[in-house]
Design a protein around this nucleic acid. Structure first.
Lengths: 199, 199
DNA sequence: TTTATTTCGTAACTATGAGTACGATAGATG
DNA sequence: CATCTATCGTACTCATAGTTACGAAATAAA
């Protein structure tokens, strides 16, 4: 067992602050266009400090994705797993996706969607985590759809795995539109049409 | 009028070869992860040669996008403008989008979609051209949808501009799925469901 | 206090990539 | 053959970004 050694110089690097700053920068700008040096400037941390904490650029991006997941992706999983009607869930998905980001003080678009688009430019650890998260999301959609089918709320003859890809694609499209500046109300209309298809 | 001056050392740089190579690399790899130096190695051209011909990295990407448009986007415009039923056009869109790229000897995904995703990392000239092309595509969808509505082949009450965004988003989603390795048959199913919505 | 231990951060190093200075080269013209 | 002209390509410059070497600093234990 490792006891809390109080030896040595006390750590001053604020891991959470660095991580949150990184998430916001990657999210707002782009995961491949924010350098370690930029994060240093914004947080006051030193480069070796960040390397000691996260190991590498890849490590920081990986940690940022993990952080983003429990910060911004949690509501998605929650909607899919909550016990509610298929219709109610679809409505909740539209509402969640088209929230007013400005009002929430959060960037538009989706860091996960951005990382997927640049998957091959990311480090190997981050790349693998992107793949895993993608599969997790698809699995969550599948469980949800399968449940709706067995409850008789979804009679569509579309295969469940294809339907999962369908919903995931709609969500990704919405995030891209948002980043391109399309009004949330318009995006919501698009999503409602898309989601009405599967019932 | 400028007459064809035969003075000076003859040009040896093969503009078309460089351009096609650039298009294929940007398309296959990513527009922001292919350096001028890489294009040089692949084509045998020298760096100053490429700069003399295209002015800058931005200029080359811009020319590549233009080339891509008349190479790979032309069929899309053609389908939308051809005189055929709304249904026939939608079927043609699905077929075009889910062509077997391997068999055609062409990369999967779409360079234009990739450039849109990285719009802010591109040079100003390329960025503006991406914007213009996006608007062109949306306009083409709108003209098509408007025509279908007036022919009575599309009775959907969805606003035309929103419907255009809808179709554009579906196409983009298909291209991303293709790049992520989803089977074309599956993508076609997704698209058919999505397109069936608007009628 | 001295020593052991741990973190701190300046100042490098290295690699890559955009962009260019400039002398060499190749053909037309006279 | 001499000159004019336009392109060629080697070998730079310059900037950025990931990464690290290493001595200074801070705290607990002896």
């Amino acid at each position: 067992m490792e006891k809390a050694e109080n030896r040595g110089r006390p750590k001053t690097l604020d891991r959470e602050h660095v991580l949150q700053t990184a998430v916001m920068q990657y999210w707002d700008v782009s995961p491949t266009d924010v350098s370690i040096g930029e994060i240093c400037k914004l947080t006051g941390a030193s480069k070796p400090g960040i390397y000691r904490e996260f190991g590498s650029d890849d490590g920081l991006k990986c940690a940022a994705l993990e952080s983003y997941r429990s910060l911004a992706l949690w509501p998605l999983f929650d909607i899919l797993e909550r016990d509610q009607s298929f219709e109610a869930a679809k409505t909740a998905l539209v509402a969640f996706t088209t929230q007013d980001r400005e009002a929430l003080g959060v960037p538009s678009g989706c860091l996960f969607v951005a990382m997927r688009a640049q998957r091959d430019s990311l480090g190997s650890a981050t790349g693998k985590r992107v793949d895993r998260l993608r599969q997790e999301v698809l699995d969550a959609y599948m469980v949800w759809i399968e449940a709706a089918k067995s409850k008789g709320e979804c009679s569509a003859k579309i295969p469940t795995d294809t339907a999962a890809l369908y919903f995931d694609a709609q969500n990704g499209g919405a995030m891209r539109m948002q980043k391109e500046g399309v009004e949330n109300a318009t995006i919501a209309t698009v999503l409602r049409y898309a989601f009405a298809m599967i019932e």
